[in-house]
């Protein structure tokens, strides 16, 4: 089970993240005008690759703030545009060196920062200039370096630690529990953040809280993440074919409903006619979570007590 998850999901997906991020850095080096399609395409591929692994928040991604530097999200206090606008005002060329940039605020780094330059430069006061170009290149190089560092750590030992249940894992059960936790966290992020934040309350929907709405990627991220989580859930439940089948059906229902929304920015949260379909999607994700906690957790030796299930 663990080998399969490593060899067919985590390692190839981390490799894709590293390679597509390197490609993004190259593309950013060669072009700067944000509307240029090869650049947008490179950005989309690398961002896709990140979303597919964004639930794997343990080990290499957590070293030196790498994951936070790739993805400052959610940005509930609007720190990204503030940080970027400040960078642009100061226009300090020293910031653009890799070493200096890696020390700068994580709110000004990563995929969500780059989105402002490529899709709504006016929100951060970005005018076409040498410094603006230099800053987008510095962000892209920083993404590439962090992605490569994560991948290299997986290759150089972390995958072996999980495979052999060594180091921080006392036994195979702890490895499975780590993966189970990643699945749960991914579904919680999907329900509470990717869907819950834009849904807000019925009388106060928050469409501008949808993830990456500027680039129209909100629904796309939901689909990418559902697909990655589905594969992880199926691998974790492989020893119980009946459960695996129910999980597969559950994920397929959620995927079908999400695709049918046909609403890239989740703007429907503010339309009473469409909102209920997004709420229904969230409910289905929660049903999946309930099924996973009730049946998959115990089969992997995860305590599902009244107090141990979630914290306060």
């Amino acid at each position: 089970m663990v080998d399969e998850i490593l060899d067919q999901q985590i390692l190839p997906d981390m490799q894709t993240l590293a390679e597509s991020s390197a490609h993004l850095a190259n593309a950013a080096e060669q072009m700067c005008r944000p509307g240029v399609s090869p650049l947008r395409e490179a950005y989309a591929q690398a961002f896709d690759a990140w979303i597919r692994v964004s639930h794997l928040r343990f080990g290499p991604s957590e070293v030196e703030n790498r994951a936070f530097a790739l993805a400052f999200w959610p940005d509930s206090r609007g720190k990204i545009p503030k940080t970027l606008a400040a960078h642009l005002r100061k226009a300090d060329p020293a910031l653009l060196s890799d070493a200096k940039f890696a020390q700068s605020s994580i709110a000004g780094r990563g995929f969500y920062a780059l989105e402002f330059f490529y899709f709504s430069p006016e929100d951060i006061g970005a005018e076409p200039s040498e410094f603006t170009c230099g800053l987008t290149r510095a962000i892209a190089r920083d993404i590439a370096k962090n992605s490569e560092a994560i991948y290299q750590d997986w290759l150089s030992g972390y995958a072996t630690q999980m495979r052999e249940a060594q180091g921080r894992y006392a036994n195979e059960s702890e490895v499975k529990q780590e993966l189970y936790k990643a699945l749960n966290t991914g579904l919680q992020v999907l329900s509470d953040m990717r869907l819950g934040r834009p849904l807000g309350a019925f009388d106060k929907p928050r469409p501008k809280r949808a993830e990456a709405w500027r680039s129209g990627r909100s629904l796309h991220h939901i689909l990418l993440s559902l697909d990655a989580l589905k594969q992880l859930a199926l691998s974790l439940s492989a020893k119980d074919p009946a459960l695996a089948e129910r999980l597969e059906q559950g994920f397929d229902r959620v995927l079908a409903r999400a695709e049918a929304l046909d609403d890239p920015r989740l703007e429907g949260v503010a339309d009473p006619q469409k909102r209920f379909r997004i709420e229904a999607l969230q409910q289905q994700v929660n049903d999946l979570r309930t099924l996973i906690e009730a049946e998959l957790g115990p089969s992997l030796g995860v305590l599902a007590g009244f107090n141990s299930l979630d914290g306060d």
């Binding site: 936070f68 400052f72 509930s76 720190k79 919680q188 509470d192 819950g196 849904l199 807000g200």
Partner: peptide, 16 residues
Amino acid sequence: IETHPDSGRAKLNLAT
């Protein structure tokens, strides 16, 4: 940890 009832018990500011 920042949370908001709209997003249940999700943690909104772990980065900072």
